[in-house]
Design a protein around this nucleic acid. Structure first.
Length: 463
RNA sequence: GGCGGCGUGGCCGAGUGGUUAGGCAGGGGCCUGCAAAGCCCCGUACUCCGGUUCGAAUCCGGACGCCGCCUCCA
């Protein structure tokens, strides 16, 4: 049984699936108005890991993650740069998928775009107006949050106390500062779609309700996103589903933030580092390992130091892959646990990892177990238990693969000159000509190789 | 003002009553012609003050500090 923290209940509870054996999950995706930042990297990694783990455990996952392609910030950028909104969207959506590919985030089964669902949104908003849970003002249509009995469920606060602390500037046409825009009337030069209540565009909170229900159906299993979406975004989605009397997400999952020097990384603070930059200068797997080594609900510091730390830890794992020549796993397709033969040596490891992962995705402890197993595999090999060591190492590779982390043995493409130097060095060593062997090693190092003496002689690899 | 979270060894980061988290960095050793990789050992941490307990980083109370949400944000 998989257990997961549910924000709506504020507790870890059994993942209670709509259909046994199948998980339907919706992950709130990005607004494509800029390069993705580290926070986007974290949420995609966290939920990719969850998804992969569910699959590994034999569940059939339907994973939906949207692209918000109509938004004030997109319009603002297009204006600033004197180009078309569609052009802005095209550029940054392309950057988004590039970054996802480099992070090793598996493609969603469906990636709906808000603009493909305008008609459905208009219909929903019209129904709200009809039923009087929404109202028109001079600038658009607003949802009346007071019509939803348990508004504030996800925020963990009743409506009254949310209202008391509201920082939003009061628009006197709004009945409550917490009421949110369902529809924004188009100003001149703004993109617009027709609607019975006036030409314009949808507010941000409506698209996810419509798209998740369309693609996953009523009462889907899991709705996820960054903690900052908990309120008001997810609260408002929920409110709309409630108002439409449609069963919505059975569970809510939220991941912690990326911090910068102890402060939340956020768009508004403009203290973000682009994911694109990070991925250009580091091994993308390092970020995944960094994410795995802390709990998904905890904040993490992503800095040059913590990434470098993760890269060094990764080197240890790659060394294992090299030593045992492990296959590369964790691509777009990955193994299911039942497809792997858990040898005697690794069964206990597997069971411990399963217990940890199934308890609210305890990746930090699972990773600690795996690192312990790395030592065990190396020790077994050092002691000459080659087969046993190999079986354990293979299992480690499979389990990291299940978490989306590919262990890389590295390429063995060696140029002819280097190959000749290796042969010369082995000859020199055979003659116990250490001076010459060391000279040849220096030469190889100068050519950019890491030189190691293996059981079969000189082994060179890229650092 | 309301709600929530956090404070752990040089760094990152788990842990929720008693036993080694793990990684990185550092020191010592084994192995090696010398290295590298690997293995072993080591630092004996838990903001502070009280309390409960045979025993607390872990529970309770208080203090201090930090962060977040109640606009936009993953």
């Amino acid at each position: 049984m998989i257990r997961l923290y549910d924000t709506a209940r504020a507790e870890v509870r059994d993942l209670n699936l709509r259909t046994p054996g199948r998980v339907s999950m919706y992950v709130c995706g990005p607004t494509v108005d800029n390069l993705p930042h580290l926070g986007h990297g974290r949420f995609t990694l966290v939920w990719d890991i969850a998804r992969r783990w569910f699959t590994f455990q034999g569940l059939v996952v339907h994973y939906v993650s949207n692209i918000t392609d109509v938004d004030d910030k997109i319009i603002a950028r297009a204006k600033d740069e004197g180009r078309d909104e569609v052009d802005v969207v095209k550029e940054y959506e392309s950057e988004w998928w590039d970054a996802m590919a480099r992070l090793g985030v598996k493609d969603p089964d469906d990636a709906p775009h808000a603009t493909d669902y305008i008609g459905d949104m208009v219909e929903l908003i019209a129904s709200f107006l009809e039923r009087d849970v929404a109202y028109q003002t001079s600038d658009g249509v607003y949802f009346d949050v007071s019509t939803v009995e348990d508004y504030g469920l996800l925020a963990g606060q009743p409506l009254e106390s949310l209202r008391a602390g509201a920082r939003v500037e009061m628009n006197d046409e709004k009945r409550s500062p917490l009421d949110f825009a369902l529809w924004k009337n188009a100003k001149p030069d703004e993109p617009r779609w027709p609607a019975p209540f006036g030409e314009g565009r949808p507010g941000w909170h409506t698209e996810c309700v419509v798209m998740s229900l369309d693609l996953l159906g009523e009462g889907f299993d899991l709705h996820c996103g960054g903690l900052d979406l908990k309120f008001p975004h997810h609260e408002n989605e929920r409110a709309q589903a409630e108002a439409a009397m449609t069963p919505f997400a059975r569970h809510w999952g939220h991941n912690g933030w990326v911090m910068v020097n102890g402060v939340k990384m956020s768009t508004s603070l403009n203290n973000f580092t682009s994911l694109t930059d990070l991925l250009a200068r580091t091994d993308p797997r390092a970020y995944r390992l960094l994410v795995l080594r802390s709990h998904y609900r905890s904040p993490i510091e992503v800095t040059v130091d913590t990434i470098a730390d993760a890269e060094r830890a990764l080197a240890r794992l790659d060394t294992l892959a090299r030593r045992f020549d492990l296959p590369v796993l964790a691509g777009q397709d990955f193994e299911v646990a039942s497809a792997h033969v858990w040898a005697e040596e690794s069964l206990e490891l597997y069971e411990r990892v399963v217990a940890l992962m199934n308890d609210d995705l305890n990746t930090p402890l699972a990773v600690a177990e795996l690192f312990d197993a790395v030592s065990a595999a190396n020790t077994a090999a050092d002691e000459g238990h080659e087969g046993s060591a190999r079986r354990l190492a293979q299992s480690i590779g499979v389990l990291f693969g299940a978490l989306g982390l590919a262990l890389l043995a590295g390429s063995h493409q060696v140029d002819a000159t280097s190959e000749a130097l290796v042969a010369e060095r082995d000859a020199a060593r055979a003659e116990r000509n250490w001076a010459e062997a060391d000279r040849l090693r220096d030469e190889l190092v100068a050519r950019g190789w890491v030189v190691e003496d293996g059981a079969t002689g000189t082994v060179i690899r890229h650092p």
